[in-house]
Design a binder for these strands. Structure first.
Lengths: 144, 144
DNA sequence: CTAATTGCAAATACTTTGCTGGCTG
DNA sequence: CAGCCAGCAAAGTATTTGCAATTAG
């Protein structure tokens, strides 16, 4: 009943309203990286009394609290995903479909810290997105 | 007299107007990563007859032509820099000052391609930004 | 009961675009 | 001289905010 993100809100003593609970659930259930409109749509499907302004306000609150993270991939709108301290990852965007694939590479993480250190900095955050075309055409595609 | 970016425009047979020449010069001279307003300011300082709309249109034209590249660092506005095929680099942002430092790391480049390949993609582009705090406090700071 | 939260609509910030006269090639 | 380009202001997006009513703790 209590979604992981709702629990995170409770842990941080955020005042829980029906709207926030619904938005928390939508974000917890999301397996993709929805933008504000998408979160709003999904939230309204659960409870119609949720305005877009509240979605914006809530997403900002959650992000400021470190509960979720925002990304700007190809398009103009910010997209969101739950923060999971045990599952840091970066993103690869399929430029043909827009699909976002998550990945993690230990070597890459270490290398970034090494580079920052070499430049005289301590790494506090990073953003890495790879944009790629699938090597193999989709099965059934016999264009070649 | 002819800035490198103006030359690139000529090579691509873009119609050169006074405005485009000025904007090309501003971008060629920029050692930082100015946003649209900043480019406009600098352009107007050279020739007052340049509107913001033209700056937007020209930056888009240059970007679509591959002559410049845009980035979205911390803030909301796109920032621009000349494309230099002989000088690919990524960016490290000093979170205390907002200063942008350019760097290049061969190993990192290769690793990204390897990761994309492992996931079944051919890397067509990437975006990497490191956010860091300076390791040494500013000289004169004796907080430690 | 008090302070935070919400919905609504208006306001903002950034960027794009329709139109008309002007300039490039 | 045909077609692209610039300026201007109006229109678009994406996001934020003021205000009065509502609700959580």
């Amino acid at each position: 009943m209590t979604s992981p993100i709702e629990q995170a809100c409770i842990d941080k003593s955020l005042k829980m309203t029906d709207q926030r609970r619904v938005i928390a659930r939508v974000l917890s259930d999301a397996e993709d990286h929805p933008d504000v409109d998408e979160v709003h749509h999904r939230a309204v499907a659960i409870d119609a009394r949720i305005s877009l302004a509240t979605v914006y306000r809530t997403l900002r609150l959650f992000e400021d609290s470190g509960i979720i993270q925002s990304h700007v991939f190809g398009g103009p709108r910010s997209r969101y995903e739950a923060t999971d301290d045990d599952d840091h990852h970066d993103h690869l965007i399929n430029v043909e479909t827009g699909q976002v694939i998550e990945f993690f590479d230990e070597e890459l993480e270490g290398l970034q810290e090494k580079i920052a250190a070499r430049l005289g900095f301590r790494l506090v955050d990073h953003r890495l997105e790879l944009y790629g075309k699938p090597v193999k055409p989709a099965p059934g595609n016999n264009k070649a």
